[in-house]
Nucleic acid binder design. Structure first.
Lengths: 251, 251
DNA sequence: CGGATCGTTGACAGGTATCAATGCTGGTGG
DNA sequence: CCACCAGCATTGATACCTGTCAACGATCCG
């Protein structure tokens, strides 16, 4: 449980906090939101547009969270006043279906926001489960609200995040829920490869691929095995690389 | 760019122009957003939380728009600085797929916001086409931004609209893209019936049902015809009523 | 080594797409 | 008014795709 920044209890004494903040600014460990300013992925996350002043004026705890593969971040229909910024790793958003099966409705990567629905006080719409070891920041919704009322600087980033929700949803329907299993699987592999910095990317289990594409585990396995036989896909443990051109022309 | 929202049907054009002319008259008589205050569906739309002051202080044109069934409100990948509030009618959001076919990714009804992606300056993600005669208000994005910077009162409503985008997307994946054609069709009929005020609801063409559920027109027709034969669905022209219990228990 | 988990493959049944033909209905023009 | 047309709905035959049930292989780890 790293980094509990218990500053909120001191809000009645702003002067003392200023002193404290300033004093520890020079330290290696930075309290409050100071560390957000130095975050190596700040340019990609929610606070990208904020200025040093904005961050310095807030005194609320942002906790670091580390998840191991398989850990649940939050449950479907749960409620809590936090949104999460993904620093590294991979998270699946899972919905339970009436018949007992599950459907993965989105994948979240570095820079993405998890649990954005907490911003309007709603229950989480899906269960969030880590596919890999994942690190993220837990941000109280009240911070967002305060930053937003102080200045409209956060507005654009919030709109952008919501927009990504919509465009991802579109992607899911267009690429992963339309056409036959072979075509959908090819689209998924291309999607996974596009968002990797090097040649190799994380290949989910056949069960997860099935839940992503709304096909059975067996069908997912058959298609993946066939791609491998045809030389369009190479796998090594949980990682894979593809022949883009071949997969783009699946028919 | 006035006239951007016009469209395929010749019949719609004179009517819309007529309406715009008339609109300029009422703007004179009734400046600012005064008419929004008196809108009969204001309690359901974006400006629900605003006070009379907020509306009175603005002087920007909000045009009324009337669409006939089949008219296009905006094109996919088009860009314009407007969002649209639906006062009455029904709109489908359509995405063109690489193979030339189309997928309906959402339906919009009274109170819904169309083209919400314009709020962050993005291109429209889908084409918007009226399924029935539809009336809506065209709101310049600048009004939203101005209202939002003056007071945070719009914030909640905006979050709510974005949240609806997400939860609708979930619905589409869970109800309309999972399971066999019979089950998905039953879910669609229940969805359409749930949002109607009386016993009868609008039944889309078989082609649209197919585009909604990602099945062929023929399959949609077969399932609908079968439901009718089994007495679970009655149709009269473009309208229908259902036996809820029977459809809820489709295997 | 043995068990657990995941991936692969086979056989078969059932569901869906495809191609094609035929009703059905509202609207149009003679 | 009626015949006709265009678009939509329905239905059939068939091939293909996918789900289901079952068995077996591969890998990892204690």
């Amino acid at each position: 449980m790293p980094g509990l920044y218990l500053v909120s209890e001191l809000t009645a004494m702003p002067a003392a906090i200023d002193m404290l903040m300033h004093q520890q600014d020079t330290d290696h460990a930075c309290p409050g939101l100071e560390k957000c300013w130095h975050c190596t992925c700040r340019s990609r996350v929610l606070f990208a547009d904020l200025r040093h002043d904005d961050l310095g004026s807030l005194h609320m705890p942002i906790d670091d969270i580390e998840l191991s593969a398989g850990d649940t971040l939050y449950q479907e229909a749960a409620s809590s006043p936090y949104v999460y910024t993904l620093r590294s790793g991979l998270i699946k958003l899972v919905r339970l279906l009436p018949n007992g099966s599950v459907r993965i409705v989105r994948l979240l990567r570095s820079g993405d926001l998890a649990g954005i629905e907490a911003l309007n006080g709603s229950l989480y719409l899906q269960q969030a489960i880590a596919l890999q070891d994942t690190s993220l920041c837990r941000i109280p919704v009240r911070i967002i609200e305060q930053l937003n009322s102080d200045s409209p600087r956060l507005y654009k980033q919030l709109m952008t995040r919501w927009h990504k929700v919509q465009s991802d949803a579109d992607l899911w329907l267009a690429k992963f829920s339309t056409g036959n299993a072979r075509k959908r699987t090819a689209n998924l592999l291309l999607y996974l490869a596009d968002n990797s910095h090097d040649e190799f990317f994380f290949l989910p289990t056949r069960e997860d691929i099935g839940a992503l594409l709304s096909v059975t585990t067996e069908t997912a396995s058959r298609v993946i095995a066939d791609f491998k036989r045809q030389g369009m896909l190479q796998t090594r443990r949980q990682f894979a690389s593809i022949e883009r051109y071949a997969l783009q022309h699946i028919g």
